[in-house]
Write a protein that binds this DNA or RNA. Sequence first.
RNA 1: GCGCCCGUAGCUCAGCUGGAUAGAGCAUCGGACUUCUAAUCCGGGGGUCGCAGGUUCGAAUCCUGCCGGGCGUACCA
Length: 550
Amino acid sequence: MKEEIRESIGLALERISSSENIETPKLDHFEVSIPKEEFGDLSTNIAMILASRMKTNPRALAEKLVNELAGEPYISSVKVAGPGFINITVTPSRWIDYLGDILSQKENYGKTKTGKNEKVMVEFVSANPTGPLHIGHGRGAAVGDALARILSWAGYDVYREYYINDVGLQMENLGRSTIARARELLGRPFEEPAYKGKYIKNIASDFIKRYGEEILDSPQEKAVPTASKFTGTAILDTIRKDLDDFRVSFDEWFSEKSLHDADEINKVINSFLGSKDIYEQDGAMWLKTESAGDEKDRVVRRANGITTYLAADIAYHKNKLDRGFSKLIDIWGADHHGYIPRMKASVSALGHDPKKLSPILVQMVSLKRGGKTISMSTRGGVFVTLREIIDEVGVDATRYFFLMRSSDSHLDFDVDLAKKRSDENPVFYIQYAHARCANIFVTAKEREIETKKFNEIDKSLLEGKYELRLIKKLAQFPDVVASCAESLQPHPITQYLTDVASSYHSFYHNNRVVTDDIKLSQARLALIESTMIVLKNGLSLLGVSAPDRM
RNA sequence: GCGCCCGUAGCUCAGCUGGAUAGAGCAUCGGACUUCUAAUCCGGGGGUCGCAGGUUCGAAUCCUGCCGGGCGUACCA
């Protein structure tokens, strides 16, 4: 609808400027928004934006536009209001026609082509395989996954990736930890392990079963890498399982080790040599990142020839760019915010526009339970796993709660609320709306009411207040998805779905769908089916199920 | 110290590429079930948008300074 209004405004402007012999001003970003109900269906501030450039005042320009727009057949009322807003009301029949779009597009309703098939990489989670995923990772997983789904609906060619830090000192420590626990299990003397979680004990036990006690007697150079690999693989398997159960999937699990094995990291550093972006000092190679807003320049290769983590990340991002992705979205924990300038600088050094990289920071999660808030800071030592929270509150509620706030806002995860099967819980409120719709079809079938095609129903029967309010909400869906894709934020979808559910429940309360009036029943069934489609599609973008029964 | 995020209703948060009387959910108060699921609906109360300046026709939104909270400040990954 917004697009239609924009086009009409564009045409109206051309007519005005040609009749007044002035140049048509460029239409940059003026707003077409949905105002309060009493103002109309849609509203635009274009007159206020353009007035000064057209050397007139906002209200005068608005009046002219109103005269032009009044001729549009789909507009029933258009008025100037306040300082120069133009408020537009669209005819009921035009709104009702949207149901035709919804019913014909079904599971595709809401998709747009705004992304123009641009290749986008969403890299997310990418947690080190040194322990199970915690709820912070879970939030990142939910956000990255939802964003990937949204972008794909908005017409982007989306690729999802998990970057595995499977190399370096931490992997070595991980292997040593397993060996230490294995020795402990066998009653041998052992060193205090670096990784203390009980999952290491389980892995250590499997490790002995797999390689036998003798492995502990082999030289460190052999035992440690064997244990590292074994442990890393085992942990990665549980991470995969957790994410799978959380309905999060990846197109690729990208191994950092593969970059080392192909010597890609040295290659990329060497390619920088001689450029203005890199210099040598104290025997080390430094990348100029301070000019990009970093606190200081950063070492990419130490004097001893060993490359740093940043160097590997540069090679990884080069790899992404080489694969043809023009938009790189990285979902990071907020504690990595200091990393943004240096990665932007790295992308520049690679000869690309740093705007191609869009890091999304996901803020920390606190758990609220029994009125008490438990902070999840790494220091606090409190460490709730994603698995625990899924098992306790379920995937639907967990995902929804992770997605209902802006990702750069700290999240208070209210466990008690998430577990409630009642109207207090927003996710159930939405799912219940869907289940109610589904149940109406069960009733309709029992009464043997035949559902009609959209062009066979009597559309004039849907012009009531509650019907139109709901239809207008449903018609917004593609705009909402496109706008989420543009701003790279999933959370407005949750608010939107709450609005749809609310309009629906309100309609439901005031109208009976299945009645003896067959024609009316059939018209309303078309509305109910449309509602189900939007609720289901919207929930699917969040990775939340749309149950038929509750 | 410096950098990033946050500070909006009792609580949790939207709104922040400037626009009309600042919104939602929960909580609270008052109403509505012989009906396709009341897991619902309808209504009320509740705000110096952290503080102080500035920019302008107009500021929760932009700028500056301060206050409060979180996070980060490695030749670790």
